[in-house]
Design a protein around this nucleic acid. Sequence first.
DNA 1: TTAATTTAGGACTAATCTGTCCTATTGTAT
DNA 2: ATACAATAGGACAGATTAGTCCTAAATTAA
Lengths: 148, 148
Amino acid sequence: MLFTTATGYALRALAGLPEDGSFCLAKDLAARLDIPGPYLAKILQGLVQSDLLESVRGPKGGFRLTRPAHRITVGEVVAALEGPDSLDGCIMGFPTCGGDHPCPLHEAWGAVKAQVATSMTQATIRDLQLMDLRHLKEAKDRSGGSRP
Amino acid sequence: MLFTTATGYALRALAGLPEDGSFCLAKDLAARLDIPGPYLAKILQGLVQSDLLESVRGPKGGFRLTRPAHRITVGEVVAALEGPDSLDGCIMGFPTCGGDHPCPLHEAWGAVKAQVATSMTQATIRDLQLMDLRHLKEAKDRSGGSRP
DNA sequence: TTAATTTAGGACTAATCTGTCCTATTGTAT
DNA sequence: ATACAATAGGACAGATTAGTCCTAAATTAA
């Protein structure tokens, strides 16, 4: 996949938080979205430092979005997890690709990057919520419960 | 980058082989393209098993293409190094993305994948040769010789 | 105040990718 | 035959990512 699994987990988690702004426990999110609990906790803590989430410790604590879902773009989340320039660089890894030495895929990949970047800045967490992430857990349950 | 560094090395190496069909030593290629020698040797051995290169051991040995450069596509090389389905899967890593549960980037990414796939099957090693890879080594020399 | 709950943060393990090293094995030349 | 040069292949080391585990700190409730 183009993004890391941690980024995918972060996107799922943000979309899985309750829309009413109430706090949600990391372990509940993890169970509902079928993500390894301690790993998701780490990722959520990072999102707090990136100011996309806020957290409260102790009973009745948890995580919630710092902004409404429609005001957090997918691009922001990707940038927080993978840095702001994750799409830069030659698709083939040629260190000198560009300008006067374009690789054969330079132009095609440039157009593609622009399109992906645009999509990422337009798509928001709200769009992800519309995906109905419940089927993630259901798909796991149907496929036989415990994994090896 | 979208591909692994090993794939990038493989593409550079194939493009760097002499066009007259003569055999070329792994270490010469590595020095000319500024790629770690033993690692490149491993990659070239894999390309032999993928039938993109043929090799001869001993003095006067080395590697050469099994086919003319214009008959080896970038897609073949990528498939040999990363498997035939390296572009499949949801860009965000959603395991259930597709069909009735598309992610917000599903459509854009689908179009992008098709475009990249097409470019990869159209671009050949010959196109890479036209890049003039000599500047890789020159760029390294200019930037101060030994790396940390 | 005490106990329970939950995030914060660091250390640790496992897997993969990148890269190195050493020892065959094969081929050429003397 | 012998020495030498090159690929073949495996074991090994380092870096990064994925994931686990344990302890500390903060908050609530009794």
